[in-house]
Design a protein around this nucleic acid. Sequence first.
DNA 1: CAGTGGTCTAGACCACTGG
DNA 2: CAGTGGTCTAGACCACTGC
Lengths: 267, 267
Amino acid sequence: MAASPSTPTTLSPQTAAVPVQAEGSGAPAFSPLYQQIKSLILQSLQAGEWKPGETIPSEIELAARFRVSQGTVRKAIDEMAADNLVVRRQGRGTFVATHAEQQVQFRFLKLVPDLGEPGSEGPAQRDVIDCRRMRASADVARALALRSGDAVLQARRVLSYGGAPTIVEDIWLPAAPFKGLTAERLADYHGPMYELFETEFNVRMVRADEKIRAVSAAGGLEALLNVAAGTPLLSVERIAYTYNDLPMELRRGYYRTDTHHYHNTLG
Amino acid sequence: MAASPSTPTTLSPQTAAVPVQAEGSGAPAFSPLYQQIKSLILQSLQAGEWKPGETIPSEIELAARFRVSQGTVRKAIDEMAADNLVVRRQGRGTFVATHAEQQVQFRFLKLVPDLGEPGSEGPAQRDVIDCRRMRASADVARALALRSGDAVLQARRVLSYGGAPTIVEDIWLPAAPFKGLTAERLADYHGPMYELFETEFNVRMVRADEKIRAVSAAGGLEALLNVAAGTPLLSVERIAYTYNDLPMELRRGYYRTDTHHYHNTLG
DNA sequence: CAGTGGTCTAGACCACTGG
DNA sequence: CAGTGGTCTAGACCACTGC
């Protein structure tokens, strides 16, 4: 059933027929068709062919474009849905995942109130304290895969729930992809920061690693969080990645855990 | 194509032909065939028809037993593999997941050394300090879905890496399922506790929820962990569940985070 | 009612493991 | 070499959405 090499009847620029298999060298590193399809779709996603919240072409269309069966496209999309890159909605289509959806926000904010449901406090109040352009220190550069001295944006903000300051976050971003981001733009945007990144800078955060420690409130944190100096705080260091495992954000958060806790599920 | 109601040619006790659909009432609550198959396999798993580490029947066998196509069985097993209930190995078969595998252990112990790879320190030294039978307090009872006053086992142990005490854990277990568990049995077992639970008590932990906070070392913890009183520690409260979302363990851990950190990935 | 994703089947063939 | 899971196809039909 190999794809017959007739003239491509579809409009795809990058492929008239999937590579099928790179035979020839010693270890061919077998890759199933649906994986190749998956990475092709991924490329279109990165290239911005379809933006967050939009639908991607139907399975039948994609099958025609790539000259494979619908079942193969289905398996590729199944995996992308499992990776939270895409959301399937029966009867409507398949949509590019976006941080504008509430459920996605909770996947990236694990601090929940001790009492009540995760979202029961209403939206956080976000106060940007500081935002400046600077040169990357050695450890910031390493985290963001930059060189020491490269330009970065740094911001500090406080998140409050029900009027109570609960989180202080220091955020570092590579300056180049976020060209034009200012303190005003940050302060005026009332909504998730990752949503802003999507709509304004075409940067979609896909995954993040967090390192969590217990530390003592000091160095001004105690004042911002309205706790006594020495109060134990949760320190959460996050590196967030876009599509190609490309780090795009370093974030150091300090969480009060007297009224909230970090929730995690092990499976 | 519906399953013909002939005599069951297979040995399955609980099903000669899958329920197909519970029509009749107002909202039939449609459930696809592969979901029904999945829950049937799940029942066999709970009943201990196949033990952790053993293979389950091949897809072809299961398809014959349930009188469905191999593809339908495959989809059921695919989901169970995604849930880490089962592990597929091409060419060999499908195996019941077990905590005896190293990779599984890291899914349930998220504290990793700041330097070096997750397993680089070698196995933890486990010292059981205490183990006693007692009556459940209100909050322990609630966590384990027992009644206040029901019998529980309580244990405290210290985990050390490279000779340095790093974790103190208080553990509560419902006494009934763990009948016969003694301090000696715990102390003499050199290996993951959840592995012991599987082999000795036929209790397999499948999932766990953790609540993480920052606290100050006090009440004897500072001595056990060899830190100054007031040192910030990570407090990790875990409830672990077996197959039916049945809570089977409450665990309160206190982690040193000066040499280690809790690692988490957000997707 | 047309279009989408979701389920189910049947069959062919491939990749991997073990005896 | 037989048996397992893994891939791919083709086609039928179902459930859901929106016009």
